[in-house]
Amino acid sequence: MKIAFVGKGGSGKTTLASLFARRAVAAGHPVFAIDADINQHLAAALGVDEDTAAKLPKLGDHLAEIKEYLRGDNPRIASAEAMVKTTPPGSGSRLLTIGEDNPVYDACVRNLAGLRLAVTGGFAEDDLGVACYHSKVGAVELMLNHLVDGPGEYVIVDMVAGAEAFASGLFTRFDRTFLVCEPTVRSVGVYKQYAEYAADYDVAISVIGNKIDEPEDVDFLREHVGDALFGWCGRSKFVKAAERGSVGPIADLEPENLALLDRARELVELGGKDWARFSEQARLFHRRNAEAWGNSRMGVDLSEQIDPDFVLGPDSTTDTRGMAKVS
Rank of each mutant, 00 (worst) to 15 (best):
residue 42 L to W: 02
residue 51 D to M: 11
residue 76 R to A: 12
residue 91 S to G: 14
residue 62 H to F: 03
residue 70 L to H: 09
residue 34 I to Y: 08
residue 37 D to G: 14
residue 56 L to D: 14
residue 60 G to R: 00
residue 98 I to E: 15
residue 90 G to L: 02
residue 87 T to R: 03
residue 63 L to K: 12
residue 72 G to V: 01
residue 103 P to G: 13
residue 55 K to Y: 08
residue 91 S to T: 10
residue 48 V to P: 09
residue 115 L to C: 08
residue 33 A to G: 10
residue 73 D to F: 04
residue 46 L to K: 04
residue 43 A to C: 10
residue 37 D to K: 05
residue 36 A to C: 14
residue 103 P to K: 09
residue 112 L to F: 04
residue 83 M to K: 01
residue 34 I to F: 10
residue 87 T to S: 12
residue 95 L to G: 06
residue 61 D to H: 05
residue 51 D to R: 13
residue 109 V to W: 00
residue 71 R to A: 03
residue 93 S to H: 06
residue 39 N to K: 13
residue 54 A to H: 11
residue 99 G to F: 04
residue 49 D to N: 08
residue 48 V to G: 13
residue 81 E to Q: 13
residue 113 A to N: 07
residue 65 E to I: 00
residue 92 G to F: 00
residue 84 V to C: 13
residue 63 L to H: 09
residue 35 D to K: 08
residue 60 G to H: 01
residue 66 I to C: 06
residue 88 P to E: 10
residue 97 T to W: 05
residue 106 D to E: 15
residue 109 V to F: 04
residue 33 A to C: 07
residue 49 D to K: 02
residue 90 G to A: 09
residue 76 R to F: 02
residue 79 S to R: 05
residue 110 R to I: 00
residue 71 R to T: 00
residue 65 E to N: 10
residue 76 R to N: 12
residue 38 I to D: 15
residue 83 M to S: 06
residue 80 A to K: 04
residue 40 Q to A: 15
residue 63 L to N: 14
residue 30 P to R: 08
residue 41 H to T: 10
residue 40 Q to V: 06
residue 29 H to P: 11
residue 116 R to I: 00
residue 91 S to I: 01
residue 35 D to Y: 03
residue 84 V to M: 15
residue 60 G to F: 00
residue 49 D to G: 06
residue 95 L to P: 03
residue 49 D to Q: 06
residue 45 A to E: 10
residue 46 L to R: 01
residue 113 A to T: 02
residue 31 V to D: 13
residue 113 A to K: 05
residue 62 H to S: 12
residue 45 A to W: 01
residue 83 M to I: 00
residue 77 I to K: 09
residue 62 H to Y: 05
residue 107 A to T: 06
residue 75 P to Y: 06
residue 35 D to T: 07
residue 78 A to E: 15
residue 90 G to D: 11
residue 48 V to K: 07
residue 75 P to H: 07
residue 26 A to C: 12
residue 108 C to A: 15
residue 116 R to H: 03
residue 30 P to F: 07
residue 76 R to Y: 05
residue 97 T to S: 15
residue 78 A to V: 04
residue 100 E to N: 11
residue 79 S to D: 15
residue 30 P to C: 12
residue 70 L to V: 02
residue 66 I to P: 03
residue 33 A to N: 07
residue 76 R to L: 09
residue 114 G to F: 00
residue 99 G to P: 09
residue 116 R to F: 00
residue 67 K to D: 08
residue 72 G to R: 01
residue 79 S to W: 03
